[in-house]
């Protein structure tokens, strides 16, 4: 991946001065200001404090990953068994796993061999190693997508914007280098990845949803957010309970405090 360059930025001292009053906000504010490209906000099912993943979106997103992204991008931290979380049955997961040939071994003759995948196997990587991935991709390394939404400013919004942000021909006056593509939201605007999602109806969704470019980008962004933060729903549900508990405990403690201090005030 090309190094992200830091372009000149407008002075937003006044707007950011508010962050100073809460000093520790300065760090994220700085990061947010880092990408001068403003990423459009996309509405997702998991937005907000109580948001959860839409299971249909997740399953369609997995289909997009499987049929489009997986040709170049690995998802090495995930195992097929994790797909149980997106609402697939044990049998469906086993069938998906078995449709991949996974390297195993060595066998008794000391040779590696391939066998059908099992639920416990990690997702099959498209390339044997990084060098092979570069060789097949014009020198660029397609990044692993396991934690991609946590690893990019803007998260899922950025993924959605990137997938829908290609522009061909590029805006007037911009020369795009050989083998590169113009993207509105990619830092530096020149990206090695050809538009992966390029036309409506590029794939047939199993659930019959119309596969528009926006729909596919949205679904795969949701899927990748789940891949990066599979604990998200459990975390938020637990958070609500913990905070409710603490608020009650806080009220009780404060009442005790008032009682204890009543005779000295």
């Amino acid at each position: 991946m090309p190094v992200r360059t830091l372009p000149m930025r407008k002075l937003k001292a006044a707007a950011l001065a508010a962050a100073l009053s809460l000093g520790f906000l300065a760090a994220p504010a700085a990061q947010a200001a880092e990408g001068h490209i403003s990423i459009p906000d996309t509405r997702f099912s998991f937005d907000g404090v109580f948001g959860t993943f839409d299971r249909g979106e997740l399953q369609r997103g997995f289909q997009v990953y499987k049929e489009v992204c997986a040709a170049c991008h690995s998802l090495r931290l995930l195992s097929y068994r994790n797909l149980r979380d997106i609402g697939l049955s044990e049998a469906e997961v086993a069938a998906i796993a078995a449709s991949y040939q996974i390297q195993d071994g060595p066998n008794d003759n000391g040779e590696m061999f391939e066998r059908p995948g099992r639920a416990s196997d990690r997702f099959r990587k498209p390339f044997a190693n990084d060098a092979a991935a570069r060789a097949a991709n014009n020198g660029a390394l397609p990044p692993d997508l396991s934690v991609i939404t946590k690893a990019r400013v803007g998260g899922a919004d950025y993924i959605h914007a990137l997938l829908t942000g290609y522009q061909d021909p590029p805006p007037a006056g911009v020369t795009v280098m050989e083998g590169m593509h113009y993207n509105k939201y990619f830092p530096g605007h020149q990206i090695g990845m050809a538009p992966p999602i390029n036309s409506d109806g590029q794939l047939q969704y199993a659930d019959g949803t119309r596969a528009t470019v926006d729909q596919m980008a949205r679904d795969v962004s949701t899927f990748l957010t789940w891949a990066a933060e599979p604990e998200l729903e459990q975390r938020r549900a637990m958070g609500v309970r913990v905070i409710l508990f603490l608020v009650i405990l806080g009220g009780l403690t404060y009442a005790v405090k008032r009682k204890v201090w009543a005779d000295v005030h």
């Binding site: 508990f245 009650i248 405990l249 009780l252 403690t253 009442a255 005790v256 009682k259 204890v260």
Partner: peptide
């Protein structure tokens, strides 16, 4: 009253 409050808060904690 204080003792009861303490008991409740203590059990909660």
């Amino acid at each position: 009253k204080r003792d009861f409050l303490k008991l409740v808060a203590g059990s909660f904690a």
